[in-house]
Design a binder for these strands. Structure first.
Length: 399
RNA sequence: GGGGGGAUGCCCGAGUGGUUAAAGGGGACGGGCUGUAAACCCGUUGGCUCUGCCUACGCAGGUUCGAAUCCUGCUCCCCCCA
């Protein structure tokens, strides 16, 4: 059952790829040595937020590293922050996040787990899932014990707290408690290693301090670079709308990747581990290779080839995709009111449809519809593919 | 306990009685350009039965010919002093 490889040094070298920081220096290697001596796998922790269940490419950077630990025989411990999500995290602005119900959290956790298995292994020897409500639903006395481990000065060391404090911006006590709770998770699962994005460095390191206060060996910390979103600049996140989900359609994955600014390509090649490095070819072709590799990774080679073809048809040849969804629209006396029909077919408001029409953003069978063509005979639209903007298509059926 | 500040469109943020569907920026969307992109240029960005009408500036009332702007009450938020 113990598949842990010997040779800690080579394991550490293997695991160092793509890592932003390994703290403390040599820490991981020491834990690997100890694991070999004790003849047991390491427990590698990753905390996750059950408020956003869908996994995007940004998450896969860390998940990939977890996978590599698994490949060396180590055990991944995913922790669902169900307790914290139930309280509602007020961080950032004053907009208190809605507290989720237990059912929602459970459902989100299942979704997350299912999607995570596209990257990590679900082998029960190499994986466990835990909910932190299991141990955070503690007594006041226990909370006092946890609160004693850390000082306000330590917390104010964290950059975003420091910045906000200096600016006189609000920081709730609850927010200050979050790093403590996350650190206690490490105590509860006896983590040997914890992974996270570089933006989690403070929390991960605080976990070490808290473990020490509880008389446990301190976890090694590995931080991974943050993957920029498809805008090429900001961190990939659902709220920014710059993400590519691992369950997204192949064609959408492909097209979104192609929109990535050139400057971010090298980073994507590296972090998404699709190929050793950006090939020395023109950027356009490199990006195609990147897009193909990403789609292949999650949908297979066949789907990737199809996605590329569809992309060429729509964006290069300005044609119509193979698969166009049908939409029923209504007519009266054989006349179709275009804004209404677009509203029905694409779910936009009539005002928005009028604007698009006025800007030449509506095409019927490839030909722009004139701005003043508000009412057209049904024959003009029935059975035709209507294009709204650059990438929305519907085949209309006039009833 | 005391004092002060604030709530505006997707977000940030101007506006302190009428010319304000509400400056400016961001984002998004559309068109042009292009390599698919970025950059750049132009345009749009509440709804509708669309040369007009309706709804909108935390909530509820009030003053006024007329209010996001003034008054009253309420809710929520923030800062400072103690």
């Amino acid at each position: 059952m113990t598949r842990v490889r010997a040779n800690p040094a080579s394991q550490a070298a293997f695991l160092a790829r793509n890592v932003a920081d390994a703290l403390p220096a040599g820490g991981l290697e020491r834990r690997l040595e100890q694991a070999v001596e004790a003849g047991r796998p390491l427990r590698v922790k990753l905390g996750l937020d059950p408020t956003a269940p869908d996994i995007h490419l940004g998450h896969t950077v860390v998940l990939q590293k977890l996978r590599e630990f698994q490949d060396l025989g180590h055990r991944v411990v995913l922790i669902v922050g169900d307790y914290t999500a139930r309280v509602g995290d007020p961080s950032g602005r004053s907009e208190t996040r809605p507290a989720l119900s237990a059912e929602e959290i459970a459902a989100n956790a299942r979704t997350y787990e299912r999607q995570a298995f596209r990257v990590i292994s679900d082998d029960p020897d190499l994986y466990e899932l835990r909910f932190n409500g299991e141990w955070l639903d503690m007594s006041m006395e226990a909370l006092f014990g946890l609160a004693r481990t850390t000082t306000v000065a330590q917390l104010l060391d964290r950059e975003d707290f420091a910045t906000r404090y200096r600016a006189g911006a609000p920081i709730s006590v609850l927010e200050l408690l979050y790093p403590l709770m996350q650190g206690y998770d490490s105590v509860a699962v006896r983590a040997d290693v914890e992974l996270g994005g570089t933006d989690q460095t403070f929390n991960l390191l605080l976990g070490r301090d808290i473990q020490r206060h509880y008389g446990q060996p301190e976890q090694a910390v590995l931080t991974l670079p943050i993957l920029p979103g498809i805008d090429g600049v900001e961190k990939m996140s659902k709220t920014k709308g710059n993400q590519i989900g691992v369950t997204e359609e192949p064609s959408s994955m492909f097209a979104k990747t192609m929109r990535l600014p050139d400057e971010a390509m090298a980073t994507w090649f590296e972090l998404l581990a699709v190929e050793p490095s950006a090939p020395e070819i023109p950027p356009r072709d490199a990006k195609r290779a990147l897009a193909r590799a990403i789609v292949s990774r999650f949908h297979g080679d066949v789907a990737a080839a199809a996605a590329e073809q569809a992309f060429d048809r729509i964006f290069v040849e300005h044609g119509v995709p193979d698969e166009v969804a049908d939409a029923d629209v209504s007519a009266s006396d054989g006349i179709v009111h275009v804004p209404a029909a677009l509203g029905e077919a694409f779910g936009v408001s009539r005002s928005e449809a009028r604007r698009l029409l006025a800007q030449g953003g509506v095409r019927v069978a490839g030909q722009p519809l004139a701005a003043d063509e508000l009412d057209v005979p049904r024959a003009r639209l029935d059975g035709e593919v209507v294009q709204l903007g650059r990438r929305r298509f519907r085949r209309l059926r006039v009833r």
